[in-house]
Design a protein around this nucleic acid. Sequence first.
DNA 1: CAGATCATGTAACCTGTTACATGATTTC
DNA 2: GAAATCATGTAACAGGTTACATGATCTG
Lengths: 184, 184
Amino acid sequence: MSLGHAILGFVSGRPLSGYDLKKRFDHSVGHFWTATQSQIYRTLKRMADDGWVTMTVVDQDDRPDRKLYHITDDGRRELHRWLTAEPEPLVIRHPWLVRVFFADQLSDEEIAALFEARAASLRAQRERYEVAIPPAIEEAFRQIGSNRARRMWQFTLDYGLMRLEAELRWIEDALAELADLPED
Amino acid sequence: MSLGHAILGFVSGRPLSGYDLKKRFDHSVGHFWTATQSQIYRTLKRMADDGWVTMTVVDQDDRPDRKLYHITDDGRRELHRWLTAEPEPLVIRHPWLVRVFFADQLSDEEIAALFEARAASLRAQRERYEVAIPPAIEEAFRQIGSNRARRMWQFTLDYGLMRLEAELRWIEDALAELADLPED
DNA sequence: CAGATCATGTAACCTGTTACATGATTTC
DNA sequence: GAAATCATGTAACAGGTTACATGATCTG
């Protein structure tokens, strides 16, 4: 996956500006993918060069002009190719596990604090998911009106919650085991 | 976390060369963190500049000379500071979910194939974990002899397996729901 | 004789982050 | 009067990937 593919997904519905895309990223896929404004503008330029999108300028009086990006037939083909392509190799990067791996150097209390702090982060994240995402999904549904899309969005939220719950259970198990951690 | 912290973790036990470190990354933390050779050499240079490590050259007749990196007191302090620091903010990036998010554009069959292919990747990964990692942990234990460390390594493996199992269950649920996916 | 292992590194490139720059309008 | 919103971008940097470069020795 590349940022370009996510952008193709968004512009496949309607033409959007870089500014619009930034909002889409923040509000609808922000819980599993982020993009900065400078990254979006940079990528749109390259996508236009590659013929995945075309750009039209919309003059506005009060506000800065908008540059709308429209998907091309080539872009649509690339989007479908990517959606049905082989799964990408699993790239697994867990900075958190690096700490756990070297945590034998810490005292029992420090190790417990490490896991507790991680659990607190995860619970805060779960809170954000539960509070912020369901209304965002409903709002997007109101605008787009696709039940099929809504079901897919719900899958991504289920995934996030499932991950958080599973990790919280793992931490509980680990904390229970810390009681009889070998001393060396 | 930075690559430098992982390197500090490794050289805190015994001095190592860039080449040694590459093997450590591949064999012991490879299931949750990777580093390329060029990244390791680049980072070692910066760590020496920053005073986290010092370097000594070991002449060898048959083979290229080795450059051994030793942790300094400053490096040890930095390692402990990092291990006990506040948890880093959760950065959540799931390229796989981006596909799911836009998958409403696909047919029911294509969506099912998407999930099935993902499940196959996850099962292959589980296979690798179960076959390759436990012996690697035992081998590392034989060399280092720390039961405390072995317990921590086991935690990281448990985490990986837990994640795979949880995602596989999520895919099963999703596949079951695909039967009555709205058409639009 | 081909390929792996030992051991060092550099160069070019891609992705992502942070900060800076501009300037009008709307809202508190 | 300050801050948010609308809307565009650039510049510099950090982290990660791929490919290239060298050269001996060991293994099949």
